[in-house]
Write a protein that binds this DNA or RNA. Structure first.
Length: 246
DNA sequence: TAGGCCATCTGGTCCT
DNA sequence: AGGACCAGATGGCCTA
């Protein structure tokens, strides 16, 4: 357990003078434990604060007296100790900052790994373009919505229920990994558009019954279909995702 | 070359 | 008290 910074500081404040035993190894960064150990060693080696020169009453201080010489020496030591203390304090702060940077870097790496995992379960793009972070999030949002909508329609006894048309429309195409499997009910997929804001604003494929081609999936990454709607959260839960934002 | 995206650093704030 | 989280700043790389 590293000693608190305040402890080190208070120790340093008490160190008005210091022996030469505490070398200041400022090259490289020290651990907190090392820093505090050194700081405390420095403080303990210096002893209690040296009282100010009281001088003998009636005897004016003269610089070349032995007492005045001692005072001068103490002042010099105090100055050197302070320089060392500040350097070590800087080193201590630097050390903690480096550790925090390392943790932050690691945290961001974990976040990126999670984003990669998310990309891996999303439909891949025709041109293999790697989605940016924001695109990944928007795409995932849309994709989840499209899948949920498909399930909802299926639960309503509308197998497909026009879902294929909607989902394969230029606006919704990125929400699906590809055309339905050959074993799926092609007829049910091909007919009738469900009443949804998505369907209302989408234009179906020229031939909905045919497998979607890469051209069917053509879109630009900057397309508004990837946008989050700028709507309140509660509205987001019930509103299809394809609301452009500008 | 401007603009977008990204990684990293940094200091502040919140949480355990 | 220390770590997690967050947002701003900065600089590098890439592309239209």
């Amino acid at each position: 357990m590293p000693a608190p910074l305040e402890t080190c500081l208070s120790d340093l404040d008490c160190a008005s003078s210091s022996s030469s035993s505490s070398s200041s190894d400022l090259s490289g960064f020290l651990t907190d434990e090392e820093d505090c150990a050194r700081l405390q060693q420095s403080a303990s080696a210096s002893g209690p604060p040296v009282p100010a020169h009281r001088g003998a009453p009636g005897i004016p201080g003269v610089s070349d007296t032995p007492r005045a010489h001692d005072d001068e020496e103490r002042r010099r030591r105090r100055g050197r100790a302070r320089v060392r203390s500040e350097a070590l304090l800087h080193s201590l702060r630097r050390s903690r900052r480096v550790k925090a940077n390392d943790r932050e870097r690691n945290r961001m790496h974990n976040l990126n790994a999670a984003l990669d995992a998310l990309r891996s379960v999303l439909p891949s793009f025709p041109d293999d373009t790697k989605l940016t972070k924001i695109e990944t999030l928007r795409f995932a949002y849309n994709y989840i919505w499209a899948l949920a909508e498909t399930l909802r329609l299926a639960d309503q006894g509308l197998p497909g229920g026009g879902a294929r048309e909607r989902l394969l429309s230029p606006q919704c195409a990125p929400c699906l990994p590809g055309p339905p499997s050959p074993t799926s009910d092609a007829e049910s997929w091909g007919s009738g558009a469900a009443a949804s804001p998505c369907a209302a604003s989408s234009s179906p494929l020229s031939d909905p019954s045919s497998p979607a081609t890469s051209e069917d999936f053509s879109y630009s990454l900057g397309d508004p279909l990837f946008s989050f709607p700028s709507l309140p959260k509660d509205l987001l839960r019930t509103t299809p995702c394809f609301i452009p934002y500008h």
